[in-house]
Structure formats: C-alpha cells, structure tokens
C-alpha cells in the first residue's frame, strides 16, 4: 500500500469514528466554552480592551482544548494493540502519523470555526485589520500545535501518568508558535502592526517541525 492510500484509509476511519461518537469534538467544545466563560469573569473586558487581549485568550483556550483531543489520539489504538499490529505490518509509519495529525487538525479547525462566533459575541470583537489574515494565522497556527501535539501524544502515551505528560512536553516547545499566533492575531485585530513577520515565522515553524516529526516518528513507533 502506498503512503497516500494508508493515510487516507486511516484518516477516513478516524473521521468516521469521530462522526459516530463525537467524543473529541464535544469534550473540546465544552472545555473551550468553559475557558471562555472563566476568562470573561477573570478579566471582565470592555470592547476596546478585549481587542488587545483577545489574541491571547483565544489561543490559550484553543491550546487547552486541543490538548484534550490530542490526549485521546493514540489511546484507542493502544488499547486494542493496533500499534503493535501496525508495527509488524509493511505500511509506512509516517502514513499513520500523517493521518492522525490531519485528523486532529480537522477536529481543532472545526472547533475553532464553531467557537469563533462565540468569541465575537462574548467579547464584542470587531477586527480592524483584514479578516482573511486571521484565517491564515488560524490554519498555520493550528497545524503548528497539532503536528507537534500528535507526535508528543505518541511519546506521552508510553509514559506513566500519560494525561499530564502531554502538556508538560508540548507547551515549552510550542512557546514560539504560541507567541506568533497571539501576536499576529492581536496585530490583525487592533490593526496597529503588520502580522507578516509572524505569519512567515509560523510557516517556518510548521515546515521545520513537520519535517522533524516525519523524520523521528518511525523510531518512536518502534520504541520498545
């Protein structure tokens, strides 16, 4: 089987399972909603202020929510010994990784699309800069979080205290991506600065870490 074939099969399987259970998307949605409500109590912002802090709020909420879904990525496969089966099969390891990463990317993008109107309503957001740039930042930023998150979920699943391990190793590495997302979003919302540097940085981050993930995933999958 080719890489693309395996990727497509695994991805469709994951999407179908998620479509039937809706576990990941529901728990992420509810979690992000809670974060939004708690932040609004904590900061109680006016429209003018909220434009400045919204970039941070949005991405912290999505980051925490994404961790909820990322933690579930490999749990099912581990429980049913799918990973062992995969290891002895001739299918390329990176196909499995790509399928999982694209699946997670899809879930988090759906979450963002559903949550965006809520942010606009709750925080009275109106963007001064062009909105299409926000979409570019969201797509690049989500991939940055998800590609490393999927990889680190594969690391943390093999440790004791799995659930807590993922944020501990994911957050430090993700700091530059998070900084880029927050700053780009703030500069677009306030329209005070150009987000170009941050968008380029996110693109570089995505390319570099996608390459590192693909390079190392086979070793991690085969780790005894």
């Amino acid at each position: 089987m080719t890489t693309i074939g395996v990727t497509r099969t695994t991805l469709l399987k994951d999407l179908r399972m998620e479509w039937r259970s809706k576990d990941a998307i529901n728990s992420m949605l509810f979690f992000a909603l809670l974060v939004v409500v708690i932040f609004s109590f904590a900061f109680n912002p006016t429209a003018e202020e909220s434009r400045r802090i919204a970039g941070g709020l949005i991405w912290v909420a999505f980051l925490f929510a994404a961790v909820v879904a990322l933690n579930q990525t490999w749990a099912r496969e581990l429980r049913n010994q799918v990973l062992d089966a995969y290891r002895v099969s001739p299918a390329p390891p990176n196909a499995l990784f790509l399928a999982k990463a694209i699946g997670n990317f899809f879930f988090v993008v759906v979450l963002e699309a559903l949550m965006a109107p809520l942010f606009v309503v709750f925080y009275d957001l109106r963007s001064v800069g062009p909105v299409w740039q926000l979409i570019v930042v969201a797509l690049l930023g989500t991939w940055a979080l998800v590609v490393n998150g999927t990889f680190f979920a594969a690391l943390s699943i093999r440790t004791r205290s799995r659930e807590i391990m993922l944020p501990l190793i994911l957050f430090p590495i993700s700091i530059p991506a998070l900084l880029a997302m927050v700053d780009a979003t703030t500069s677009i919302l306030t329209g005070e600065a150009s987000p170009d540097f941050w968008i380029k940085m996110l693109a570089v981050y995505d390319v570099v870490f996608t390459a590192v993930c693909l390079l190392l995933f086979e070793s991690v999958l085969n780790a005894e």
Binding site: N148, F151, F152, L155, S156, R158, T159, R160, S161, M165, L168, I169, P172, I173, F209, V212, L216, S219, V220, N222, A223, E224
Partner: peptide, 22 residues
C-alpha cells in the same frame, strides 16, 4: 521529566526524540 516518567527500554528513544525537538 519525560526521562523520569517513561518506562524501561522506551526511555532512551523517547528522550532522544524530545531532545532533537528541543
């Protein structure tokens, strides 16, 4: 932390992967 919390023979590979990311 990852080194401390991972089990047995997997530690080395997992840690090496994270080191390269870092």
């Amino acid at each position: 932390v990852l080194r401390r919390f991972s089990a047995g023979g997997q530690t080395q590979v997992l840690a090496a992967a994270l080191a390269i990311f870092g």
